[in-house]
Amino acid sequence: MNEFYKELITHTDNWVKRVIMKYNICPFARQEIESNTIRYLVIDETKIAKLADKLVEEYQYLDQHPEVETSLMILANGFGDFNRYLGAVYLAEDLIEDLGYEGTYQIASFHPEYCFEGEDFDSATNYTNRSPYPTLHIIREASIEKALENYNEPESIPERNIAFTERKGAAFFIELLKSCKSN
Rank of each mutant, 00 (worst) to 15 (best):
H65Q: 09
Y114D: 10
F82W: 01
D120M: 08
D98C: 03
Y101R: 06
S71F: 05
A76T: 07
E117N: 12
L99H: 09
N83M: 12
P66R: 11
D63Y: 09
V68M: 09
Y61A: 03
F110L: 12
G78M: 07
H111P: 07
Y85S: 00
E102L: 12
Q64D: 15
N77C: 08
V56P: 00
L62V: 10
E113D: 15
G78H: 04
F116Q: 04
T70H: 06
E69N: 14
G118S: 11
F121L: 06
D98Y: 05
L95E: 04
M73V: 01
E57T: 11
T104G: 01
S109R: 02
Q64R: 15
N77I: 11
L86A: 03
Q64L: 15
E119Y: 03
T104W: 05
V68N: 05
Q60V: 13
G118T: 10
D98Q: 14
E117L: 07
G118Q: 08
A76N: 04
S109Y: 04
G78Q: 07
L75R: 02
P112N: 10
Y114N: 10
Q106G: 09
E102T: 13
Y61S: 02
D94P: 00
F110Y: 12
P112H: 08
A88G: 08
H65W: 07
H65S: 05
D81M: 06
E57I: 08
D98I: 08
E57C: 10
G80T: 09
H65K: 09
A88V: 12
F82I: 12
I96S: 00
C115R: 14
V89A: 10
L91Q: 07
E119T: 05
Q106K: 15
G78P: 04
Y85G: 02
Y90S: 15
Q106F: 08
L75I: 12
P112M: 05
M73P: 00
E67R: 10
F82K: 03
P66L: 13
L95V: 11
H65Y: 07
A76H: 06
P66W: 09
G100A: 05
V89N: 07
V56A: 06
F79C: 03
